[in-house]
Amino acid sequence: MQQKTAFEENDLSLLSVKDHVGTLTLNRPKQYNALSRPMIASVSTILDEINEDKNIHVVVLAANGPGFCAGHDLKEICNNRNEDYLEALFNECSQMMLKILKLDQPVIAKVHSIATAAGCQLVATCDLAVASEKARFATPGVNIGLFCSTPMVALSRNVSRKNAMEMLLTGDIFSSEHASNIGLINKVVKEDDLDKAVEELALKIASKSPLTLAMGKRAFYKQLESGISDAYEYAGAVMCQNMLTNDADEGIKAFIEKRQPEWTGT
C-alpha cells in the first residue's frame, strides 16, 4: 500500500509523518525486505532526511509484507562475490545502523514477523522494539558457513553474552517471548494489537521535549563507551547543560503549576 510522505517516496522504503511520528517502512515485501545495497542506500537517505526534520520527534521502523527483514540479500551477494563489493556492502550497512543510533529521534522497531541476521541486527540497533507474538528472531549465518559478525555487534550490546552467543552459535530461531526475556525487545503483544501498542508508545515519547530526547539519546550511547567514573563525569555535564535549557525551565514550572508543558525545543 502506497503511503503519502513528507519527502520523496521510492520503491524500497517509504516515509509517512503524523503527529510528530515518522514511520519508515521497509518495502521489498516479496524479498522479505532483504537488505540489498539499493535498499540500504534508500533507508540511509530517508534517515538523513528524518534527522533534519524537526517536526519528527519519534521514528517507527516498520516493514511491508510477510517478513520484517530477512537480513542481507543472499542472491545479490552470490552474484557479486568479490572483496570490493563485499567490503562496500558491509560498510554501507554498518553506516546505516550507526545512523539509527545517531539520530536525534528515538527509533522504535515494529516487528510483525521474522527478523533474521541483519534484520535481527536492525531490531537490536533500534532504541526500543515492540513485537507481535508471531515474530521470530535469529542470527542463522552459522548454518550456511557465515558467522553473523556484524549483527553480533548490535546483539551483544543488547543481551547478555551467553544469550548472544547462543543465538550466534546455534543459528536457532527464537520466539518473541524469548526475545523479550533476554532483552532483545521491550514488549510482546498480540498480532492484532501491534499497531495500537506501537502508536501509543510513539505518541507518549513524542509528547516529550524533542531537545531533551535528543540530548538524552546522545548521552545514553556515549556514556556506554566510557568507564563508570568517566561516564558519571560526562553525564553530570550533560545534566547541567540540560537543566539550563528553556524546555527544562518550562517543564519544571509546568510541574509546579500543575499544567501541561509547552515545549519549544530550545
Rank of each mutant, 00 (worst) to 15 (best):
I100Q: 12
E52T: 13
E76F: 04
N27D: 00
L211F: 02
C148H: 12
L14K: 12
D192E: 13
V189W: 00
T264F: 09
L244H: 09
L211C: 04
I40K: 03
S229D: 05
L184D: 08
L184K: 09
G119K: 09
R161N: 14
R28Y: 06
L15A: 00
L224Y: 12
F174G: 07
C240G: 06
E200M: 10
V58K: 10
E191I: 04
T170I: 05
N91R: 09
C93W: 12
T125C: 13
I46F: 07
C78Q: 11
E200I: 11
A235L: 14
P29I: 01
A197K: 02
F68V: 05
K258W: 02
T264N: 14
V107S: 11
E233I: 13
A115R: 10
S175G: 04
T23W: 02
E262H: 08
F68H: 05
S229I: 00
I100R: 12
F90Q: 10
C148S: 15
L14M: 06
M96T: 11
V21N: 07
L86R: 00
Q241A: 15
G67F: 05
L244D: 10
R218S: 12
E76G: 04
A6K: 11
V111A: 14
G251K: 02
M97T: 13
S113Q: 14
Y232R: 10
E76I: 01
A135M: 01
C69R: 02
S44P: 01
V21T: 11
I50K: 06
D195A: 11
L155Q: 13
T212N: 09
A6C: 08
N80C: 04
D53E: 10
E133I: 07
Y234F: 09
K217V: 08
P29N: 02
D48I: 00
Q105E: 15
N27H: 03
L98D: 15
R28D: 04
M97N: 15
D172E: 14
